[in-house]
Each structure stands twice: as structure tokens, then as C-alpha cells.
Design a protein around this nucleic acid. Structure first.
Lengths: 333, 333
DNA sequence: ACAGCCGATTGATACGTTTTAATCACGGTG
DNA sequence: CACCGTGATTAAAACGTATCAATCGGCTGT
């Protein structure tokens, strides 16, 4: 392994001082064109690559941002992550990914890790909004943007989709189709998205006579959870005539349970999902869903974050709320 | 923003030297129990968190590893990433994620970024096996493990699934069902997985009389690419009686195109995918597929990588090849 | 010809940690 | 009582970069 080549060797080769090399790297406009060319050539010949840790140590902040999601395997988050990664990569940052698995303990452990790594900013869908590690990060001057969670506090950015509106949209659609006995399949208790969507669903029901909403909580917001909830739902005395799921994964699971049991979708039971993931349209019965601008969510969140990082003074915190949209397919007839 | 609290402040508060604090952090067994307790208390009271960049700078290597995949939105990679993240997180490392988008230029840019961040190791599914940045990383002493790519070189670890066997498995299955006019829908040219699966398909055909294999290349290995390939496939003079796709996403797209055009699956055309993603079973017609131990791939790859990082001398490079498995569902009758 | 100025470059220092060799306290041994 | 060994602790020297005040050289205007 050859002796590491640093800014010093480059400087020597280009017959300039280390300071100049640093300037070429960080403020190229400050150095005269011919000098710059010489330095660049030396960098190339020596195969120099800047030592990020030294740079971070000296500058006091890194060129990395963290992204913490509830579940990397969930297409909703991967789609958002794609938006995040695109911006990050365009702007020359690095992305530290971590997964809380909807587990507050794991979340805290990972937050500490991100703090150690001195990330400059953090995009997070928190399990625990009030985690002390989260507050500590902000006190240390790390910008935090809430992802898919409406910002309660005016002193930070957030990007979210109006889940109450989404829930209302969904149930209004089902009511319009004449369904009256509606089941709501949610995730584990305590997840804000699920709560908001339920709230929207309830509001839609307010004006509707003779309609009722029953709730089934799945253990995880994935296909398996949906399958399980679907079975419980079929085991009841009366099968509902419509199911609204907090998630497309749940909906796919529920649909599978229904079809397996011989129920017809949508004739006997309408099924409605949430997120409009890529696979929704390819499902056994193409799945109606509530679409969110997921990729945009990731992109915009990251742009807000980087703006706050790069321009802390001129930055105005924003709480962005997108509106969801209903996509009707066969599963609701 | 309060003056940063470092190892020095902790030392002062615990009435010890900075060196001792460092020892508490890195080799707790070397420091006497009462001292250790005092230091730990001070850390807690001051809310100290170790500065990773300083640590990395001094130690010469970080506690982060990189993961570069072809497409973060592809469930195959997210499933593998879950395996990676689980191990990383258990062992207290950080994960830097980047996405090459099957683009060699983006790949090189991201590799440079990872090199700057001084990742200690890298898991990668390369677009370009011979990218100079990749070789440069290894020369710098960064451990590299190839993910889902059989290792040609004996001097590095790799974890992969036998794609030739998978292709053969797939086409043998179709032949056994009496299909003779088989289409192979692959991704863009140059992707090793696709090439290997084609090779396996060809070998399966060797002994079969009157059977032929036609190829359709999709633009991207996603649902849209499959839809498009499906349309081209239908536009031909004779529609094949079976389609083997290099990917479940492609298969879902192809299936959708077929169903939309009124073809019956599997009666008119059998469809067979690859990867057995979670959604395969929930498809319009439950999709037969070739299953790979994807989560395990990520886990084992990471374990090999960390072993190589932590124990560079005693480490023996391994090229692990898993065997795929056919999962027959309705789409092949 | 000279003061003054401006852009380009330099030199020195600090960032927070790890590590090595040196120091210290202390009890057992000859 | 002097000596040595042992385990715990310390002091000091790096690691590679960014930054800032200082310097240099050339040019303008008087």
C-alpha cells in the first residue's frame, strides 16, 4: 500500500502551497486559471482523492446527510428514497441510510450513530417525534426535515401528504359506490399516518346514514399483515362490503385472503389501498388506491434540507403539505 | 450553539486525561472500574458524542461501509439491502447507500464519493466490473465484496446466485409444460445477470426438439420496460406460448400487456419471472418465479465484508454461490 | 517615481481523536 | 531496605485538511 497521497504531495508536484490546492478544491474561482490547471493535472496524475474525514473535522460539518425510514423494503419509502438519492447525488453529497423498523429503540441507536458521523442534515420519518436524540441533533445544529409527517413545530421543515384528506377521499369513493359496511385495516397502533387516515375516513362517514366503519389492526404494514387481517375480517359474522387499507401492501394481502376464500372483488367486497405503488396496477384485481407524490416528497424534502444546510441564514422553514389523489381501478368496480 | 463538548471536556469533568477517556471508549477493559464509571458518568452528563471524523482521521479508516446497487426501487435490491442494513446496524457500523441506476457514469461518480468518505468496505453490484475507481479503491485497502455477481477474481469475496442454473430451471419448467415457442425478455444489453440467465435458458433448450427461443430486450428492468416488451411481443406474427422474464418487474409488465390484449395466462401464454418478489404471489395471475435467497445474500455478503475489514490477516476470500429454486404458481399453469 | 491597491498565493494554526512511550503508585521479593 | 514488575494513567505527537491573516507582485493614477 503506497504512502497516502494528500493535499501536500499534490501541492509539491504542482509547485504551489497546500493552501492553494485546498482553494482549487473548494473555491476554484479564487485561483488563477493556469495555476488551477496545474493543480488539477497534479491531482489527476497522483490519483489524489480528498480525505473526507479531515475535511469534515476541519470544516466542522460533513458533506453527508442521513435518511431514516420506517422500512427500507416498503416501496413507498424506496420511491421516496429514490427522490432523495437523486438530489443528493446531483449535488455531490453522500447519503447515510438507516432503517428504524418502526422500532423506537433501533431508531435511537441509529440516531446516535448518525450523530457520531456528524451528518450535516437529516431526513427522518420518526417513530418517536420526541426522541431526545432527535432534539439533541437539532441543538448541535444539524438540520432536520420531517418526511411524510406534518410538522407540528414552526422551527423546522417538513414535507408530507394530507393523510386526513386521503382517508376522506378513500371513504367518500366507497360510499359513492354504495358501500355501507366498511372495514379499515390499519397498521400497528401509534403510527401517525394510520391515525390520520382513520380520522379522514371517519369524517367522510359523518354525513352518511347507516354506514359504519370497523377497524382491524395488522401487526406490520406489509403483505403478511394484510393476509392475516383479511382472515380475521372473513372470520367475523358479517363480511364487510368494502375494505380500506392504510397501505397497498396491506391491501394486496387482504385481497389475496379474500380471493382465496372465494369472495369476489369488487362484487362482494371492494378493496382500496393507499400509496399507489408500482405493483398496485398489476395486482390480481388491479387495485384502486390513493396516490401520493412520493418521489416528489423525497426530492423536495432533500432540496429543503440542503437549502437549510447551505444557507442557514436566508432559510425560511416551510411545512409543505401535498394533496393526495384517488386512482380508481377494478378493485372498487 | 454551545461550544462543542469533546473528549477534553469529558476528561476535565472526570478528572482524568483525554487519553483515558479514549480508552474508555475503545478498550474499556484497560481502565479500572471506578475510573471507567466516572468517565461514563461525565459522558452522560455532558451529552458527549464521539466525533467520527476525528476518529476516522486518526485511525485511518471509518466505521462506515458503502452499498452500491443498480436500482434502489427494485424489490430485489431492497430485500438484499435489508439484509445488509440488519448486519451493519447490529455491529454498530454506518451504511452509505448509493444508486448507480445502471449507469456507468453515475457509478463512477458515486465511487469517488465513497472513496472520499473513506468507507472501510464496499458492497457493490457493479455496472462496470473494471471501473478504474473500483480498482483504485481496492488498492487503497478498501475491502470490496461483489453482490449478486460471481467473483471472477480469487482475491476478493463475492456472493451470488447461480443465474445460469436459474435460467435453465426456468426453461426446463416451461418445456416440461409442453411450451415450445419461448420468448426471453431481458434487460438492457450488458447486464451480466441477464446474460447468464439467457445462457441457462439456451442450455435447457439444447436437448429439446422443435423448441426455439426469441429474445426481446427491454429498456429498463422495471414494469414499464416489461409493458413495452410485451407490446412488441404481441405485435409479432406469432405470439409465443411462453415468456421467461429476467425479472419479476418485467414479468408483471409483460403479463399486464398480455391480459390487456385479451390473451389468457397461462392458457395462451405462460409467464415466468425471476426473483420471486413479495408481489409476485399477489399478481393478476399469481406469478411463477425463480426464487433467490435475497435477504441472505445481503446478510452473508455483509458478514464476509466485515470479517475482511476487522480481520484482514486471517481472512480467506470466498466466492459463495447460492442455488435458485423454482416456485410454480398459476401463471405457468 | 512613488504611494496605494488588488488579486493571487502562502504559512501557520487548529479541528478532536488515537496511540505510543513514558511515568507513576504500589506491593512483593531477595 | 532496595529493587523490580505490574497495572493504571498520562503527555505529547500525529492524522490531512480548511481558513485567515500576512505577503507578494504587478498595475493604476498622480
Amino acid at each position: 500500500m503506497r504512502p497516502t497521497v494528500g493535499i501536500r504531495e499534490v501541492a509539491e508536484r504542482a509547485s504551489v502551497s497546500p493552501g492553494t490546492v485546498s482553494n482549487v478544491l473548494n473555491r476554484p474561482e479564487r485561483v488563477a486559471a493556469p495555476t488551477r490547471a496545474r493543480v488539477l493535472a497534479a491531482i489527476d496524475e497522483l490519483g489524489f482523492v480528498r480525505n473526507g474525514s479531515a475535511s469534515t473535522l476541519r470544516a466542522g460539518h460533513s458533506r453527508a446527510v442521513g435518511l431514516m425510514v420506517l422500512d427500507i423494503a416498503n416501496p413507498f419509502f424506496t420511491e421516496a428514497a429514490r427522490g432523495v438519492e437523486d438530489v443528493i447525488s446531483e449535488r455531490g453529497y453522500a447519503l447515510m441510510l438507516s432503517n428504524s423498523d418502526e422500532d423506537a429503540v433501533k431508531e435511537r441507536r441509529n440516531l446516535r450513530m448518525l450523530a457520531e458521523q456528524r451528518v450535516q442534515g437529516l431526513l427522518v420519518t420518526p417513530v418517536d417525534d420526541e426522541a431526545p436524540e432527535l432534539l439533541a441533533l437539532r441543538e448541535r445544529g444539524v438540520s432536520v426535515v420531517l418526511l411524510d409527517r406534518p410538522g407540528a413545530r414552526p422551527d423546522q421543515c417538513s414535507v408530507a401528504v394530507d393523510d386526513v384528506a386521503g382517508g376522506r377521499l378513500a371513504v367518500e369513493h366507497l360510499l359513492r359506490l354504495g358501500r355501507r359496511d366498511i372495514a379499515y385495516v390499519s397498521g400497528p397502533p401509534g403510527i401517525r399516518q394510520c391515525d390520520d387516515r382513520r380520522e379522514g375516513a371517519r369524517r367522510a362517514l359523518d354525513g352518511a346514514d347507516g354506514a359504519r366503519l370497523r377497524e382491524f389492526a395488522a401487526e406490520g404494514m406489509n403483505v403478511r399483515g394484510g393476509l392475516d387481517a383479511g382472515q380475521r375480517l372473513l372470520a367475523g359474522r358479517r363480511t364487510p362490503d368494502a375494505v380500506f387499507c392504510a397501505n397497498d401492501l396491506l391491501a394486496l394481502g387482504v385481497m389475496r385472503a379474500l380471493l382465496r376464500a372465494g369472495a369476489r372483488v369488487p362484487d362482494d367486497v371492494a378493496v382500496l389501498g393507499y400509496d399507489d405503488i408500482e405493483f398496485a396496477a398489476a395486482a390480481a384485481v388491479p387495485l384502486s388506491s390513493v396516490r401520493q407524490p412520493t418521489y416528489q416528497l423525497g426530492r423536495l424534502g432533500t432540496e429543503l434540507l440542503l437549502d437549510e444546510c447551505e444557507n442557514p441564514d436566508g432559510h425560511a422553514h416551510q411545512q409543505v403539505v401535498f394533496q393526495p389523489e384517488l386512482v380508481a381501478r377494478d378493485s372498487t368496480g
